[in-house]
Design a protein around this nucleic acid. Structure first.
Lengths: 246, 246
DNA sequence: AAGTGGTCTAGACCACAGT
DNA sequence: CTGTGGTCTAGACCACTTT
């Protein structure tokens, strides 16, 4: 059962894709859309709000809404796991566990995962590839309560997120990503097949359950010749902030 | 004149900062908040929607809203210029134009700025610093219609965005940022005071007016030991996507 | 002056969570 | 079953843009 406002949002997205509404052009007025779809103005506003959040359209009080962008990449506004993301790109994701061991939680681990210091956590080092080529090195620390489920996964599993959903029902939800650049160390270079000191894009992230309980934190290093990040944002609606080190 | 729902959103943010609502704890029900603030439920929903968009709270149908994060950095959800951002951090922003010249728009320029190929655009190379230390190298291309206002700015102006707002009324609005890592070239290294091949965080961005008209595009290279990016996101509401090169 | 989006209300019904 | 958030309506008034 899909909400009516989502159906309308989808229809508008498709209309923009079809260039029925062209970039730089105007959307119909709220009252016209409401009449056209046979709903109230409030429902139309819910629909266009999601397009605005995606950066597809802009709006100013008193003037008609403007189409800002077209050619949406499928499900742009949805955070996906590496494997899911690869799939929408038509690429094949692979993964291989290179190292895995239990350790007592450091101060940093305990803060990020909201555990008692010394709790046993699981460190996993994974190389992940696109169409067989290594592009990402994941150093992940899992909280104690999820570690058994992670350790039970075979080393070559292409989608850990998917597997954890199947085995535990866990849905990964909210997270913060801190992005910077680092030089490849000797081990990074060997595992990713690049030269030492090559620039890598580093993303440190914490993943939590929908309830806000931390599940894992990870230091991900991407080959910058293979992957980049894209952040869409607008004044009054975005999720980007610069951050100083330290 | 501030909207009531924004006032309520601010009060809730402050209450979270004060730890009146603790991380992991529950927010009061919508109807309770509505009664407390003397507004309708719809207005409360507008308020909590903005906290949700900021990743501060999470919600699931049927259950009370959960506080996901506290310790907000001031105006987290607002995209700011380099100078404005530095100011909120209590750092002093500086800027120095290293090179500036007019060139005919290349194919890339004309696509990104939506101009005719061959239109004269303004290229500016700026070094920007925090507390006197260089941290960012900006290679910016300005559209022809804004170039005169940019060229009139003195080379050491700390905030180009602020100046352009004062002189032209222009408000920078929507943009897309593509983030990756590059090795410092000889010139990058000299201007930023780092070694050659040091990893730099590169952000390529297009800035437009509120109406969606492109104003400038820029290749920004940050010293990764000085600055990183932070992206907040949640399932169903985020602005992050990985992107393959090419 | 007319059109349009932004805000707010009061009430209704439903789907899902927790008991 | 009760509480809670998600959806939707119908109407009102205001602020801003456009003509």
């Amino acid at each position: 059962m899909t909400a009516r406002h989502e159906e309308i949002a989808d229809e508008l997205r498709r209309a923009i894709d079809r260039e029925e509404y062209t970039v730089g052009g105007l959307l119909p007025a709220e009252t016209d859309l409401a009449a056209h779809y046979g709903v109230s103005r409030g429902t139309v506003r819910q629909a266009v709000a999601s397009l605005t959040a995606e950066g597809l359209i802009g709006s100013r009080q008193g003037a008609r809404r403007v189409v800002l962008a077209g050619r949406r990449s499928q499900s742009f506004a949805e955070l996906r796991s590496f494997a899911q993301w690869a799939q929408t790109r038509g690429r094949e994701a692979s993964g291989e566990v290179v190292g895995q061991r239990y350790r007592p939680a450091t101060q940093e681990d305990s803060v990020r995962l909201q555990l008692e210091p010394g709790t046993t956590v699981l460190h996993v080092l994974r190389v992940r590839g696109l169409d067989g080529e290594p592009v990402l090195l994941e150093r992940t620390v899992y909280a104690d309560w999820i570690s058994p489920a992670v350790a039970a996964i075979e080393p070559g599993c292409p989608s850990v997120t998917q597997r954890l959903y199947e085995t535990t029902g866990l849905v990964f939800a909210y997270g913060e990503h801190v992005i910077d650049a680092v030089a490849a160390g000797a081990r990074d270079a060997r595992l990713l097949g690049v030269r030492r000191t090559s620039p890598l894009l580093r993303v440190r992230r914490v993943t939590t359950t929908r309830e806000g309980r931390p599940v894992e934190w990870s230091d991900d290093r991407y080959r910058s010749d293979a992957v980049s990040f894209s952040v869409h944002n607008s004044i009054g609606n975005n999720a980007l902030a610069r951050k100083t080190a330290g």
